[in-house]
Structures are given as C-alpha cells and as structure tokens.
Design a protein around this nucleic acid. Structure first.
Length: 879
RNA sequence: GCCGGGAUGGCGGAACUGGUAGACGCAGCGGACUCAAAAUCCGCCGGUGGCGACAUCGUGGGGGUUCGAUUCCCCCUCCCGGCACCA
C-alpha cells in the first residue's frame, strides 16, 4: 500500500476488481431469496458527445443510493442506456457530413468510457440504445396495438411548426411561443399526422398524482396544472344560415351566468369564421391576421382584445333571443370547441371586449352590499362563492352550484347541452418530419390507403447510412426505403417517412431494462419483478414532458397486458442544476463576449465578495455577471474529464455530494473541490497510519470484530461515543437523501478518530476503538467514494470486498454515558450548562439547576416561578 | 394574476417531532515546521461593548403564540421555478 494517495492507481484497481467479478450484474433471485428489490434509475443521457457536470451529479446520486441499498441487503439494479435518436445527430451530420448513426455510436463509446471511469455500479449487461432496431421495433409494435385500440389515430390538424428544425412540435415543446430546442418562433400549419390519445387517460393521470407520495410536490402540481381539469357545461346555440340549420357549441364553467349572454365569440380558425369571411373581405383579412399573429402565446396574454362581427347570429338556447356572433382574437381553437359565450358582466375578458365594441352588459349575478356599474370592472363580478343569480327568471336567488345544475338540466331536456369535464391536456402528436428517429410503421397504398405494417414485418428498419443535408427529410429520397409492397393487396406502395417523436423512445426504456435480450416480446415477466422503478432521478426540466408521457405509455402497456403496475416511478428525486460564475464583456460591436472562469482573476472587496475580474491574458477588466447554469454559450462549464484526471473520480463524486443537498442547485467552487481532495488524502493517510501503527497492537485476526471492550478510559469512550453519534446522525440523513451532511459526518468521524492517541499509554486500548471507527467510516464513505473505500478495506484486512459488508449501525452501548450535560437556561436565555448523572430524576435536575450560579444570581433569593426540564436536553429556570 | 419553493456569517451550507443558531467545509488571519516555498499540523474566525470572565444584538421586514421560535400562526418585501386570454 502506497503512503501517498494516488487516485488513478486506486481507481484502476477497484474498477478492475469490479469488472473481473461482474459485481454489478443484477439478477432476479432464486426462490427462497427474501431480499427486497431496489430498482434505481437515473434518466439516461442523450449521447451528445461527452458528459457534463449535470450528468456527473445525476449519476452520482443514483450510484450512492444503489450502493447503499446493496449494503443494506437489497437486490439492486442500476442500468444505463442511451436516448440515441434526435436532432443534434442530424445537425452534426449536416455540419460534418457524417451519418448520424456513426456520430451517435462514437459518442456513446466515449461517454460510456467516462461513466466507467467514474466507477458507477452500473449493470452494463442491460445497456440499450434507442436507435437500435431491437429496441425501437417495440415502439412500432406498441404503436400498432394503439392503432387497433384507437389510441393512436391519424388526423389533420393545425400544428406547431418549427421553421428551423422543419418539424412539428407538441404543445409541450412550445415554450413562450418558441420551439423548445431552437428558440425559433413557432408557426401554425395544417399537417396530417399521428396522435396518441393521452386525453383518454387524463382522469387517471390526474387522479394517480395523489397516490405518488414519493414525488416532489412541485412536480405533481406542475403535472396537475398541465392536465388542467375543469368542470362545466357544454351547450349549443342553434342557428340557421341560408336556411341550413346548425349549432354553435361552446363550453363554460359559468353556466349560472347564461342569462347574461349578449354575444358569442369564435376563434379565427372556427368554421363559422371561415364561412362568414367568404363574402366579407375585411373579416377575411382580420381572420388571417389572427392566424398569423396569434401564435406567440406569451404575447397573447398581454394582447389587446380585438374582434369583428361576423354578421351572423345564433339563438340563445333558453330564451330564444338572437345573439350576434363575433370573431375574437382571444378565443383559442384548441380548447373546448373554439367558441365561447360572451357574458360581459361576469367575465373580465368579455367585459373588456364589450366595452371596446359597445356590446350590451347585462348583470345577472349580485353580491349583497355591492353595487354594479357597467363602466368599471370589479373583482366580485366573477365571484362564484358569494354571487346569487338576479334578472335570470326562474334561476333568481340560486347560488353557483344550484344554478349550474338547473341550467344544465334545462339544456339537457332540450337536447342542447349537458355538464362536461374539460381538459387542458391535448392528444400527443408524435409524427416528426425527421430522419433520425423511429419509423412509423405505416404503408401508403393507392388503393388501400394507410395500412399498418404487420407484426411479422417488424421492425421497419431505419437506413443508417443517410447523411441529411438540412433540406427536408432524406428518407423521402431513399427509394430502397420507400418502396414496398402493400401488406393488404400486394401492390407497389410507399412507406411513411415520418418518424416518431423521441419522447416515445424514452417513455418505456425503464421497463425494457428489466428484460435484456428478449427478441420475442417488448417486455416479459422480469419486468414485473423489477417494476416499478423504486427510485428515479433526473432533472426538473423533465417534470412535465418525459414524466407525463412515460406515465401514459406505461398505462397503455398495462392495458395491453404487459405491465402489472399502475405507475412506473414510485419515487422521484429531481436534482438541482450545477451553476458557475459568469464573466462577460461588451464587444465594440455591441455583442457580448463570455470568458471561462479559469481565464480570469477575481477582484474581491474587503469582505471577500466578488467585485469584478481581470482577464489573465492581458489584465483587461471583465464584468462579473453572477451565478448561472453551466452552459456552452456562457463558457462557464467545467469539463468532468479534466476534474477526473486531476483529482480522480472519488473527489469528483465526494465534492458533488458534499457541496449541497441533491435537490438544490450546486454552485461550483474550485477551492471546495480542492478541499474534498484534501479530505480524501487525509482518509488515505489515516488508513496508512492505522495499518502501520495501530494494527500491530491488535491480536492477530482481531480486526474483523474489533468491538472495543467495556470500561474504556474516558478519553477513548468519548472518541467512540462521538463516532457512533455521528454515524447515527449520518444514517438518519441518508434516509432523507441529505448526502451533504453524510459527507460532513464522514469528516467529523475522521476528526474524532484522529484525536485518539496512537502513541503512549492509551495507544493499546485505543487500537480497537480506532480500528472499529475506521471500519465504520470506510463503510459510510463507500457509496460516495467507492474506490478509496474498496482499496483501504482490502489493504487493512477488514475483508475481501466492502460491497459485501453490512451497512454500519451505531452501537447503543457506545452512546451511553455516566454523566450528561444539560443546557441551562434562565428565563429562556442560554446560561451555560449543568452536568448531571445520566439517570438523574427531574427533581435532582431542578435542584442542581436552581443551585447553579446563573440561576442564583437571577433569582436573588426568590423562589422560581417555574422550572422546565426537557429530559436529556435542557433545563430552564423561570424567575 | 394563479400555483409551488426559497431568503441563515465573507462563501457553500448545518440545526432531530419548538430546546446551546452558524455543525462540516471553503476563504481569511495568526502561529509551528522549512534556508525558502509548497504540502502538512495547531489556533482564531457573526456584529457591538469589554483586557477579561461576560454582556448585548443577531436567521429578509413587522406583529403574535410559548418558559423558550431559523422552526408554529398572521401580514408584508424580495428572489427562483411552473402555468396563464383555458371560457
């Protein structure tokens, strides 16, 4: 054993050991094995080139949990794979003229090497990449099952079109009116494509959120908001246009205000708007303006309410009154029926609209003590809780719930409407006009139409040698891919060239990890051993998209009979982002130039706060922008590779765990990394000292159970108590996933152990205390710094493999003490402490406290008003 | 606007179900070792007053409950994240 800590040697040793023994290969246990299973999964990476710090943090958290559960007696599984389809590969292909497949597989090879060098306890026998036909054939297979069940269907619809990526985006992929990847303003286009009826599962997706106590509150509320359930009434305004009868359907949550309707408004895309603009050029122009302008939803929110009359009118379903129909730019085609009833008196938007266009405002709700004015909006106009119907005929006096029920009943009896649950969630459009994705298994035949590819012809294999050039989908030019026989009539036909949204790939990989090598089925019985995932770990940015799609997809798999569980992820941990300082400066042309933190020298004020910085190269000043997410564009990323090369994987892992709790953001600090390395070096040096100085004092073979005898001298009993106290706290923190305090517990343990005498009279009696303490410390550290722990464990002779040792628990006997120190308070203020025998009665404690000097001083001979004793903690004398 | 989460030294962060606020680390200061430097080790390290024992203030701001509040309740300010003409 080297006296000096050499991480590269230590880490190679440990990794070679694990590799040669297949330490992390997980299996379904034989009968009689009672170990509980623990499936720990970190979100798999997109193979973009190399790992970033976010990956290191994510996978270290998962690895710590995996290794700790293994030592606690769980049958653990931690797999890894690659989310390998996607646009960056195509963009790289355009740039480098290399097929996306090669770029992707090269990246996978490199990143896999990085993951290995970090020493993660990954079962690589389960590795998968979503771009492999063996994987994506099951995307296609389940898609066909969805088609059979009507869950997948084709329709033409107005979609979000990303003009840069030349593809359709799901609603979830549009952020503030821009493409989530390109940031380009999204356009609206009408395109045929396949949709998955996630809305059929809306009720369950929402309801089950209440049964996911292991998920962060905020993720559950984000999903609930996204699903957006609302209860209301859907009803129709009948009309006749050119003698043709029709119905204008609307949805409202305020059916109690139906008698206050003075107009209706439809979206620009609504059929009535199209109809009316046929012979009204001004209206047609307005409709066109809305269509083009109304794509940026962020602008929508602040946009002025604009509208135009269609000249058409409909009949009120209850009064028969004529109601004018307007086109309104604030009405969304995608929600409900794309039309609303207008009740200016009781809806703020309708009120603004009516004021602007001089439409009548009719009060039909009143609140006692408030007076209505049709010139100014007041918040109570829309108050469901206090409002009562007025000027509403037979509904007068009714409160919200009764009024809605009565109105719905009347509409129902006329066949013009009923109550209805409305969802914000929309069906998931999965067609993408891209090459590097899973082909949609459909064949277009001139006589048979769209024909599903039969199961036995799966997979529809994506040609891997295409080099996209940026214009459209290269599959459309691949005759060998396009040409096929119609599965139904055998005639010459063409394949669908759209591929699936890559969120499909990541919607079920967790289940496939349980069933490696199965080429007969999507998943098998092994999935029901491992599923659900016990602990899922990933970034908060996936709170809606990936997690919602995965929940939906797994429910479909359940309904097809493939999975037994209702939810795929029992517990979810959303790790915080990794941040770093940002330095920039304005360029002469008005742009912004960024500088990497290692290119600048900091200037601090007297208190140590950062004031500014200078470029090291030429001493010129640069601005300090503060802390932000590590990103390529701001040049403030830190490459994990250089970190590993300089300090080793264990330091990287320890720092990641120590710097902040997993769910919080982590601020990068080179100095703290250095500190983490210093600690590991101290552990190593201590281990070396124990081996050379302490072990020789123990009888041969005593190391394995070096539990110190009772009756230790006080200084040694104190050391041992400290170690076990810290361990108890660390175990508690582990349960809360508070790994930063587990790491500091390890530091405290070492601090305590270093205080034990290694020379002099006490050294012999100290030996078992030190040897036991180090054994606890190594096991506590082993999930975080597995290489260091592994090598020291073996070198010192604790055992063959620390992986097979038991998770350490504190010894209650070590925690006992004869005398304890209680906090002494006088009038609630801290005034020193009192030492009492550990078994002291309440009366004894009170007497001792009253006799203390601070209490005597305060009481000045008077009896205390009260004495509060908290056993084992404090005593408070109230004068 | 609505929903969720925050605010603690120079910094990252601790504080179990209300019980010594600032653990552990980083930075800083002082010292030991060294020809010197690095590394390492030891000590100090929230503000104010005091040589000192100690006193006093202090967990974003203001109130409250309590023997005792970073922790519980009410009001307010600011920050972060999500949603948002959703009818």
């Amino acid at each position: 054993m080297q006296a000096q800590y050499q991480p590269s040697v230590v880490e190679q040793d440990a990794q070679a050991w694990w590799d040669s023994r297949g330490s992390f290969v997980a299996r379904e246990p034989d009968a009689g094995d009672t170990r509980p299973k623990y499936y720990c999964l970190s979100m798999f990476p997109y193979p973009s080139g190399k790992l970033h710090m976010g990956h290191v943090r994510n996978y270290t958290i998962g690895d710590v949990l995996t290794r700790q559960h293994r030592m606690r007696g769980y049958n653990v599984m931690q797999p890894m794979g690659w989310d390998a389809f996607g646009l960056p590969a195509e963009n790289a292909a355009i740039q480098n003229r290399v097929p996306p497949a090669r770029w992707t597989y090269d990246n996978i090879a490199y990143m896999k090497g990085q993951l290995r060098s970090l020493g993660f306890a990954i079962d690589w026998t389960r590795e998968l990449a979503t771009c492999q036909p063996e994987y994506y054939r099951w995307n296609q297979w389940l898609f066909l099952r969805m088609l059979e069940r009507g869950i997948a269907y084709k329709r033409t619809q107005v979609v979000n079109w990303d003009p840069v990526d030349q593809t359709v985006l799901a609603n979830e992929q549009v952020i503030d009116g821009r493409g989530w990847r390109t940031g380009a303003p999204v356009e609206k286009r009408e395109i045929p494509g396949y949709y998955l009826a996630i809305t059929r599962y809306a009720e369950e997706l929402l309801g089950e959120l209440d049964h996911l106590p292991g998920w962060p509150e905020r993720v559950r509320t984000m999903q609930a908001n996204w699903i957006g359930r609302s209860e209301g009434v859907r009803f129709a305004f009948p009309y006749e246009i050119d003698g043709e009868p029709g119905q204008l359907w609307v949805y409202t949550t305020r059916a109690d205000t139906i008698m206050g309707v003075t107009f209706c408004a439809v979206a620009a895309e609504h059929p009535l708007a199209a109809r009316a603009s046929r012979d009204d050029p001004a209206l047609a122009a307005f409709v066109e303006e809305c269509r083009r302008g109304s794509v940026m939803e962020a602008d929508l929110a602040t946009m002025e309410k604009k509208g135009m009359p269609t000249g058409l009118s409909v009949r009120h379903p209850l009064t028969g009154e004529s109601v004018p129909v307007w086109v309104g730019n604030y009405v969304l085609m995608g929600y409900g029926d794309g039309a609303v009833m207008g009740v200016p008196a009781h809806d703020e938007r309708d009120f603004a609209f009516a004021l602007r266009y001089g439409l009548p405002i009719r009060q039909v709700i009143a609140v006692e003590g408030e007076s209505f004015s049709d010139s100014r909006w007041q918040d109570w106009y829309a108050d469901k809780a206090r409002g009562r119907c007025v000027h509403s005929g037979r509904y007068d006096g009714l409160a919200y719930a009764q009024a809605v029920a009565a109105v719905a009943g009347d509409l129902r009896s006329r066949g013009l409407g009923d109550t209805r649950v409305q969802w914000r969630l929309r069906d998931w459009g999965v067609s993408r006009q891209r090459y590097w994705g899973c082909p949609i298994p459909i064949v277009h035949c001139e006589s048979c139409g769209d024909v599903p590819v039969p199961d036995e012809q799966l997979p529809v294999v994506l040609p891997e040698d295409c080099v996209p050039d940026g214009s459209g989908n290269p599959l459309a030019r691949r005759e060998d891919f396009l040409r096929c026989a119609c599965p139904r009539c055998g005639a010459q036909a063409r394949r669908e060239t759209d591929t699936m949204d890559t969120f499909v790939d990541s919607s079920w990989y967790y289940a496939r990890f349980a069933c490696p090598g199965n080429d007969q089925a999507m998943v098998d019985a092994r999935a029901n051993y491992w599923m659900p995932v016990d602990q899922y770990i990933g970034g908060i940015e996936h709170a809606i998209l990936h997690l919602l799609y995965s929940r939906f997809w797994s429910k479909v798999m359940r309904d097809v009979g493939l999975l037994a569980c209702d939810e795929p992820f029992a517990n979810l941990l959303t790790q915080g982002m990794v941040l770093n300082h940002i330095f920039s400066r304005r360029t002469a042309r008005g742009g912004i130039e960024y500088f990497a933190p290692d290119e600048v020298d900091l200037q601090t004020d007297g208190a140590g706060r950062i004031q500014g910085a200078q470029l090291r190269a030429d001493g010129s000043a640069v601005d300090y922008e503060g802390i932000g997410t590590m990103s390529k564009s701001k040049r403030n990323g830190v490459d994990p590779q250089s970190l590993i090369e300089t300090y080793g994987a264990d330091t990287a892992r320890f720092y990641m765990m120590f710097a902040s709790p997993p769910e919080q953001t982590l601020e990068w600090s080179d100095a703290s990394v250095e500190g983490a390395f210093r600690f590991l070096r101290r552990v190593w040096a201590f281990g070396h000292a124990v081996r050379t100085e302490v072990l020789p004092r123990l009888p041969a073979g005593a190391i394995a159970n070096a539990a110190p005898a009772a009756g230790l001298p006080a200084p040694l009993a104190d050391v041992r108590r400290e170690v076990h106290l810290v361990l108890r706290q660390a175990n508690h923190d582990f349960g809360k996933f508070q790994f930063n305090t587990v790491a500091s517990a390890a530091m405290k343990m070492l601090n305590a152990l270093e205080r034990a005498p290694r020379e002099g009279e006490l050294a012999v009696q100290a030996a078992p205390v030190v040897v036991e303490g180090l054994s606890l410390l190594l096991r506590l550290l082993s999930p975080i710094t597995p290489h260091l722990a592994h090598v020291l464990w073996r070198e010192l002779g604790y055992g063959e493999d620390i992986l097979d040792s038991a998770w350490p628990e504190p010894d209650p006997a070590a925690l006992e003490q004869d005398e304890i120190e209680l906090v002494l308070q006088v009038n609630g203020k801290h005034r020193g402490s009192v030492r009492v025998p550990s078994g002291a009665s309440r009366e004894d404690i009170e007497r001792l406290a009253l006799a203390s000097e601070p209490a005597q001083r305060q009481l000045a001979g008077q009896p205390p008003r009260r004495v509060v004793v908290v056993p084992g903690r404090l005593v408070n004398v109230v004068a």
